[in-house]
Design a protein around this nucleic acid. Structure first.
Lengths: 208, 208
DNA sequence: GTTTAAATTAAACAACTGTTTAAATTTGTA
DNA sequence: TACAAATTTAAACAGTTGTTTAATTTAAAC
């Protein structure tokens, strides 16, 4: 299931990504994709079979290398807390530079309508959870992290905080005076990342 | 801008809420709403003017009383941390029993397509933030809470954690063996709520 | 240069979209 | 009962939807 798409297919995938992220899957027509990609409308069916299969292809195209980055991180020689912090940075930078596909994932694949296409996505999430689990258990064995945290709920806190911020972009841009894209992206890279790291650190270390 | 809808309108709104939450706004046709509500397709235009205006009406219909509940909480005689915990419980129970509309809010109103209809929603969020702010500042003055937290980012952590969990419902149902609705809802009410409370408490109190 | 396969095109397909119309029915009022 | 207003209906509207077709162009192989 490796992604070997040709140039034309990649061109279509990139346009589809933009439009799906902006208008949603149902809100985007094949004609709109074809127009923006400057191809004939029949090419989508020709290369991908259908609009649904185009979405599947897009998912595969965009989620192949995150797994490798995570495995590399696990093998670095770092303290558990440093690994957690780096994991958070990795998530945020990855998602930030691929906002399109993650917006689509967040929207389309959490709706009841498309629950069948989950296999690839579910495997990705399970892998992510295993990586996080191994870091936290290492920290617990070393006596650094407390042991009464529910590990599967930490990912929702990390990703949920980021997504909720990003999904309400215009609200926070207005509230925090982040009127340019640069200001907004920089705030995510510094303040928001720090907030999440601070939160997870407190959760893992604080003794009640 | 009070919600004075008649029985027929409410009937339509409730069906629309179900379908919008399941299939999304674009994925739901007026004919589907009419069929499920057992009315003629022209009735939607007759009562609401258009499909867009139906969505607006639904938003108003569902977000009128949360504000009052928050104000009541603020005036209770409780310690800041207790207020925070109650606030978290209030959010989760409110959203849990109105999953439909919040799913719609999360999806439709965070897409670039519908950024204009935000006024009502934005006011709601600003009010929520002010309530949280007043509680935290009270705790800071009493020397209970640390002072280097970014208050506007706490809501994303609370709501984001919950939403990310709920938006990936089937994944977590499978992972945590929550195969019935009751098990799932109960897990939210106990474990997930506790996790969020624990997280926010650690964030507000932990001294680094 | 000829042959064969791949890529691209315009056109048509049937089904579905939101909305409007004008007629029919129900309801409330005097 | 008679009248007027509100409600409900079926039908039609003009567009858009995803997909398929058959013909044409381009590229590759020999």
């Amino acid at each position: 299931m490796t992604s070997n798409f040709n140039d034309k297919q990649i061109q279509i995938l990139q346009v589809a990504e933009t439009l799906f992220a902006e208008k949603g899957f149902d809100g985007t027509s094949i004609r709109a994709i074809a127009k923006l990609a400057q191809i004939n409308i029949a090419m989508v069916s020709y290369y991908f079979g259908s609009k649904e299969r185009l979405l599947e292809a897009l998912l595969i195209y965009r989620t192949t290398d995150l797994k490798k980055q995570l495995e590399n991180l696990l093998q670095e020689d770092l303290q558990p807390l440093e690994k957690i912090n780096k994991l958070i940075e990795l998530y945020i930078s990855r998602i930030s530079s691929n906002k399109g596909i993650y917006r689509i994932l967040h929207f389309e694949f959490s709706s009841k309508k498309r629950e069948q296409n989950l296999e690839v996505f579910t495997e990705l999430r399970k892998g992510n959870l295993k990586a996080l689990e191994s870091i936290i258990k290492e920290g617990q064995q070393k006596g650094i992290f407390r042991k009464d945290v529910i590990i599967p709920l930490i990912t929702p806190t990390i990703l949920g905080t980021f997504f909720h911020f990003h999904m309400n972009k215009s609200f926070f841009q207005n509230l925090l005076q982040l009127h340019t894209e640069d200001l907004y992206n920089n705030y995510i890279k510094t303040n928001l990342t720090q907030h999440i790291q601070q939160t997870i650190k407190a959760l893992l270390i604080y003794e009640s």
